[in-house]
């Protein structure tokens, strides 16, 4: 066979095959990487202002439990979680919103008027009316929600979990 200065037919076909294969591999391979890792980077917005009702519903000096539900979506599964907040109206009209989740191990605390304290049923942690630590194993006071009053209607700021 005479030696040709040009590319042989076989070389040409090899190069075209390799190029087409690379393009096809990249067209599937690169999206496939995104497909596999994208759930790791999805942030679902959990933050919201929850309406609690007119301020007139709450009596100063008496913590009132307010319950609400939030729905989270993980992939294709919806989970409904319940949350409880003690609304504590102060004498000066301002409002505290305290999570009823004990800061020790997340049991739900209950307001006991006769003891003037929130008491956790699990390990007997006690919190004062404004959430401060009285006694028990808890590492910090009760968590607070930010509050907002518009036209005498109270809302609390839910930021997740």
């Amino acid at each position: 066979m005479p030696v040709s200065p040009h590319m042989s037919r076989r070389e040409f076909v090899s190069i075209i095959t390799a190029a087409a294969g690379t393009v096809m591999g990249a067209l599937i391979g690169i999206p496939a990487i995104g497909y596999l890792i994208s759930p790791a980077f999805q942030k679902t917005a959990t933050e919201a202002w929850i309406p609690v009702g007119p301020l007139a519903n709450f009596t100063a000096g008496t913590p009132t439990l307010f319950n609400f539900n939030r729905t989270t979506v993980d992939g294709w599964v919806q989970t409904i979680n319940s949350y409880g907040v003690y609304i504590v109206k102060q004498e000066d009209g301002s409002v505290l919103a305290l999570s009823n989740k004990c800061t020790h191990l997340s049991c739900r605390v209950n307001w006991r008027p006769e003891e003037n304290a929130y008491v956790c049923p699990c390990h007997d942690a006690r919190f004062g009316i404004n959430g401060s630590i009285i006694s028990g194993p808890q590492p910090r006071p009760l968590d607070q929600y930010a509050t907002k009053i518009e036209d005498d209607n109270l809302s609390i700021h839910f930021v997740g979990s």
Partner: peptide, 11 residues
């Protein structure tokens, strides 16, 4: 919900 899920399922 997933990036390029439509593409892989379509293929």
């Amino acid at each position: 919900g997933v990036s390029f899920g439509w593409l892989l399922r379509g293929i």
